[in-house]
Nucleic acid binder design. Structure first.
Lengths: 119, 119
DNA sequence: TAACTCGGTATCCTTTGGGAAGTAGGCACC
DNA sequence: GGTGCCTACTTCCCAAAGGATACCGAGTTA
């Protein structure tokens, strides 16, 4: 910890709040789906296994409030809403891609360790 | 990975489970504190603002089960337990450091957006 | 003998999250 | 003209996760 006293992620401060946000169960996955361009609500919902409509709405709303995602409503019937990453949101893609790559690379080791721990 | 059909983080599969684990509120912070070497339970507890004993115990236990952290008990009184990153756990440091750097670099922008959203 | 040490459990209670169902509102079909 | 369909939510209710607090064991110190 080359520890900045002002911006210490381990303490209550803006950067810690930001880590808490990213540490959200769905945030990483939602941002990942938006990597290749804007998607509609129902498309994101279909892409991510197990997310409820409620949590998708809720997470998208706070991503919008944080300026990471842009929400565009097309006044049509039936409703048409698109979500896409803002410039700021796109800066998150690389760190998350690295994390995703780590997960894919090492999941076998973790699965083995987990199985051994149960035995 | 050229086989997204098999190892798709957005679907139920080992890599998704792993992202869920990393996406845990405390995992990232705990691993970060262990960056510079082994720490005792109470040291980690003091370093991370707001973590309860229960969650620290619980998270450390599953990190141990996943082979990311090694738990060493010294049979002394009062109890002495040390936690340190395994080789596998240390491979997570770089991805997490990148994430932490992103959080520190961009928190001002997010704070601004959040304030604007409230106004 | 009482208090202090550390790394936890046990208990209770609040907060959060998920599933299912309801809402809006204009359009197509019968 | 009434019924049903479309999407993007919203609401309700219950289960699960999480936080606060109390308590523990056992040797060592006051």
């Amino acid at each position: 910890m080359s520890a900045p006293a002002l911006y210490d992620p381990y303490r209550v401060c803006p950067s810690r709040q930001l880590l808490d946000r990213i540490g959200d169960r769905w945030t990483v996955l939602i941002i990942g789906t938006l990597e290749d361009g804007p998607l509609r609500f129902s498309q994101i919902s279909r892409l991510i296994d197990g997310i409820s409509q409620k949590m998708l709405t809720q997470t998208l709303r706070s991503l919008e409030a944080d300026g990471l995602v842009v929400r565009t409503v097309y006044p049509e019937v039936p409703p048409h809403v698109e979500y896409e990453l803002s410039a700021l949101g796109r800066t998150l893609l690389e760190p998350l891609e690295i994390l995703r790559a780590w997960a894919v690379d090492h999941m076998d080791e973790v699965a083995t360790a987990r199985a051994a721990a149960l035995g």
